[in-house]
Design a binder for these strands. Structure first.
Lengths: 261, 261
DNA sequence: CGCTCATATATCCTATATGATTTATCGGCG
DNA sequence: CGCCGATAAATCATATAGGATATATGAGCG
């Protein structure tokens, strides 16, 4: 009993942004997965926090079995991890160094992917890229919540380029790597600059012109600029955190009994 | 009822070759996962074949719930896929083009990883590499089943290099990509040449010398040679398959009732 | 007064039972 | 004689219950 009607899940389907889906009668595992993903991305579940299964089962009004499967899926994506007889926990927030490493790997893959895409992309893929360019030019930069729009466009762009490379493994890997960054959307909105939009446009223009060299260069420039922008903010946050709370070793842990006499 | 004592699972723990593990009282999910992985790798479950849940449950004498979770894990690794209300199937064997693409991505990542490792590897990592070099020099090349030894060494080498790069995402990605190749071990043993061993030695030597340029070059040469060796065999198999069985669209599919009067 | 051991409880893990959906077989109609 | 719809069964999907494990609290001993 006790069906809850909470927020209408705004951030559903962030990672799995595949095209055309039946959407309506989706599996309970998918539903739980999307709910959990949105909770993680919106920090409704804190980074290090424990994720109780039966609590979620009651909260989402779903049985434990699908919840467990959804958590297993998130674990495979490294967005959560499991300690065998203790439970699941949300993945820790990426450190500044990890963000650096993440971009290091993306810099190995995505510029090359852009070059491949310029050479081998099918016409449909280019059409979708052109369409995306149109969408993104409409977006404002100064606006408050327009940042979400930008972030979505950014994700779509990288996804499309990776897919257009024609290399299945590149597409899968890029998709997997991007998932880690969604959480940072809510920490700062520094990437939504006019400059970032120009970088996007440069990438798309090079691809539409089928110029591999320019595409590779544009993608590399975009990633490096993006990494630099993130690094600035992360250094700032690091300094603040160091001054603020020196003692805060581990997340909220509570087990065993809670009430006594 | 009906506990079965079949083969003592020879190929357990192929993908998860992490160090030091409790090993003994492992979760049933892990057990099912390893059993399934070994079945997939040894082709005991054919590439396109349907994987029935309750059948496996009886066969492994494990309940359906852990089986299902293990399958979900394999699905996340793209070693199996699920059709929503129909069931799980083993992933199709990689086509020649997919193998090419897989190596294309590895060529983007692993040479760079080797260069990073040469610069930033900790002493422990180098020590393990040196130890691996000792192991591999003992292995014979002409021997029959010595190929398994070589394959294991190859997997360990790439894993160690990726880990030694100090970049968590590189390590994870390389590990994930390598999983797809395990199946090919049983199709041919062409890679276990004296030449391949020399390539391995060159990589390790460059790393021990902390020479990034040489390490990158050695890794690139090894991957390209390995890709070429695989390509030869795959072309051969392709030709054979084309001449042999033109009509064989899908794997064994059986549902609904089986017996009637 | 501090440390170790026993007990209690919450939680995870596994098993089993019920419900939903797909697939195959059979009968009827065109 | 072939195509199509209804029925049956097998399987997947989900819910719920029971057993196992770890963690926290408190008493006893050094």
């Amino acid at each position: 009993m006790a069906a809850n009607n909470q927020e209408p899940l705004s951030f559903a389907r962030l990672v799995t942004l595949d095209e055309r889906r039946p959407a309506y009668p989706q599996s309970l595992v998918e539903l739980a997965y999307e709910q959990l993903l949105s909770m993680l991305v919106t920090m409704k579940i804190a980074p290090g926090a424990h994720i109780g299964i039966e609590a979620l089962a009651r909260q989402l009004d779903i049985s434990q079995t699908p919840i467990r499967e959804a958590l297993t899926l998130l674990e495979a994506q490294k967005l959560a991890y499991k300690i065998p007889n203790v439970g699941f926990r949300a993945a820790e927030l990426l450190t500044r160094r990890e963000v650096h490493d993440l971009f290091e790997l993306r810099l190995l893959i995505e510029p090359a992917a852009a070059a491949f895409a310029a050479q081998k992309a099918e016409d449909g893929a280019l059409a979708r890229l052109a369409g995306l360019a149109g969408e993104m030019s409409d977006a404002q930069t100064g606006n408050e919540l327009a940042y979400a729009q930008f972030a979505e466009g950014d994700a779509k762009l990288h996804h499309l380029v990776a897919a257009a490379s024609g290399n299945r493994f590149i597409a899968e890997t890029v998709e997997g790597l991007h998932a880690h960054l969604h959480i940072f959307r809510f920490l700062f909105k520094t990437n939504a600059t006019t400059k970032a939009l120009q970088e996007h446009e440069a990438i798309i223009a090079a691809l539409l012109a089928r110029d591999p060299v320019a595409a590779e260069r544009a993608m590399r420039a975009h990633l490096e600029a993006s990494r630099a922008r993130m690094n600035v903010v992360l250094e700032e946050q690091e300094r603040l955190a160091a001054a603020q709370t020196p003692p805060a070793p581990d997340g909220p842990t509570r087990r065993g009994r809670s009430r006594r006499r």
